[in-house]
Amino acid sequence: MGDVKNVRIWFQKTGAAKYISHLDLTRCMARALKLSGLPVWYTEGFNPHIYMTFSMPLSLGVSGLRECMDIRLTEEAGLEEAAEKLRHYLPQDISVLSAAVPEDPFDAIAYGDYELRLESEAPECLWLAIQELLAQDAVLVKKHTKKGEKEVDIKPHFTQMEHKAMPGWLALRAVLPCGLQGSVNPSLLLEALSEHKNLRPYVEITRTKLLKKDFSDIR
């Protein structure tokens, strides 16, 4: 592979960009990297393409405030300069925060820190309903997987939530498993609310950061 340097790009995916799929995101990144003129490393083989590897993909519609991907540079390039160049060529709602030397491998990612903003005219009542829901012995929801539907108990994952009622909104914070060993999609809470409580509030979900096993930030 020669003398290549791993670089981790930290970015946000918000606004219009939250509505594009992970595959679309990789295509946008590839075009921006090509335009940046950075000395990116290409995979070898019959059909070479820019090497990029992403942390945990975001679901369609979920914003990410601190996402990352790794690239490889074949020559020395300033990290700040790399971030600046890439920022320039990306659509406005995919914004580069910084470029850094990776400290943790991606398989160290264990949790996602999520914020859910539920629309509600009576946020305290909605919070009560959620507490009622989570007071059940188990909160079963149907999870759609490649092998078909299966029922899972989401209760253990959502009991530690924080909440804050604001005019018109209920804000929740949940730290959920998110890693190669398995993930819990924050929207499962909404499915449970729908199935068990017949409540379907409009929700905006944001992943604020990715965490390691000890709940410290991935770096």
Binding site: G15, A16, S63
Partner: peptide
Amino acid sequence: MGCKEKSLNTMGEIRKEKGMKMYPEELE
């Protein structure tokens, strides 16, 4: 532990901060 005010800033507000409006708000 309360929710952090700043990180709860969601898309709508981020877009407003940047002064961008690309599709009607009601469509969100």
